[in-house]
Design a protein around this nucleic acid. Sequence first.
RNA 1: GGCUGAAUGGCAGAGUGGCUAUGCACCGGAUUGCAAAUCCGUUUACCUCGGUUCGACUCCGGGUUCAGCCUCCA
Length: 465
Amino acid sequence: MLHIYNTLSRKKERFEPRVPGEVGLYVCGMTVYDYCHVGHARVLVVFDVLYRHLLAAGLKVNYVRNITDVDDKIIARAVEQGKTMSEVTDRFINEMNTDATSLGILKPTHEPRATETIEPMVSMIETLIASGHAYAADNGDVYYSVNAFEGYGKLSGRKLEELRAGERVAVDTAKNDPLDFVLWKAAKADEPSWESPWGNGRPGWHIECSAMSRELLGDEFDIHGGGMDLQFPHHENEIAQSEAATGKSFARYWMHNGFVRIDDEKMSKSLGNFFTVREVLKSYTGEEMRLFILGSHYRSPLNYSTAQLDSARQALRRLYTSLKSFSEAGGAFAADDVLDTAAVARFDDALNDDLNTAEAVSVLHDVANSLNKANAESEQAGVLANTLKQLGSRIGLLGDDPVAVLQRALGDEGLDESAIEALIKERIEARAAKDFARSDEIRDTLVEAGIILEDKDGKTNWRRS
RNA sequence: GGCUGAAUGGCAGAGUGGCUAUGCACCGGAUUGCAAAUCCGUUUACCUCGGUUCGACUCCGGGUUCAGCCUCCA
């Protein structure tokens, strides 16, 4: 039984879907004006694992991950590049999809775009004005009145007075209260805009998620996720908007993933200390990155470093090597449903405990260790190999061909395969003639080219270092 | 200033009131012509000060340090 840490209660709670057998899951996705960085990768991977885990539990999951495609930064970027807003967003949606594919992310059920959900936003704002939760200011903006919502602060554990004490923003005179936030922004000249009862304008960020989630998941749904930085004000505001508009309780479980850090500092656009997924993929595979991310608990901070990526690479190779050795020794996978039940139970327990992926990965290593010890042709080995592969797939790992993974070149190819095979053939002949000097010379040449040889059972296999 | 959360072995990172996490790295052994891979084994821990307890790294309290949020941000 899945237990998840609910930010609302600050406790681990047993997860019980609102409708038995079905789960509504909403995750705040990207604002598409640039490439994804490693922090975005973490959200994608973490909630992908949640999605996979819910599916594996036999639940019908409606997974919605939105795309914010209208926003100040997007507009600024478009102006800067002399492009239209949609040229910018279309491009970066494509780039995001490319990165997501590299990371082995399953497609969500729905990926709504804010610009395609404007009408529901407008009508939600109208409802909020009618109920006294919002007001149109003289400048054409519409604001949410935080005082009018009693539960304001319940997610982030704040009180209005505390927020006022920490107030750092210059007071915007159009607001009744400095803490009020914008629902609708009056259009400036040359900005993309939509018609509304308050004149031309565009939606504020927070109302987008309230409207998109409502459209696709209904007034109430099960899980809402996102990065920790969205807890306040974004998610707090979503609750205020949605609950005031519908009179119902919004999401039941709130999950927030921790940050990726660099040198003990948050990786972010604003600090400028980020690495894009694209950059990292020049040196590491998406699967290596994924394992790096899954190596720590989703709520913990994750320190980005190439040393950790290297470590993830070695660990992943260990798992693939195990599968490869099994196949090469003539092992045959057991039937899909024949699994090492003890390992599966441990794995399930780990994920059920608030998505403890680090623990789940350690089960993979234990299975690999057992598989390495087992005689490949034994029935037990077939079961272990099947278990390893299937548990791997439950967290989006080990789906590739082991030989291909171990021989794949990232970037500069160096020697091509036929050249490698030719040298291996020559080395086998040298070894047969006990010409070990020549044999070692060939091996050294290959090592310099990044090729590692493994002599096994009279055959020689190779992989890239 | 307010509110969160965290402090584990060389690195990363789980977990538990008394019993091997796991991976990477290191060392020793097996295996190998020598390697590689694999296996076996060894070594290195739980920020600090009190308290609870037969027993605490694990629970409670104080302290210290670090991070995040309070402003766009995954």
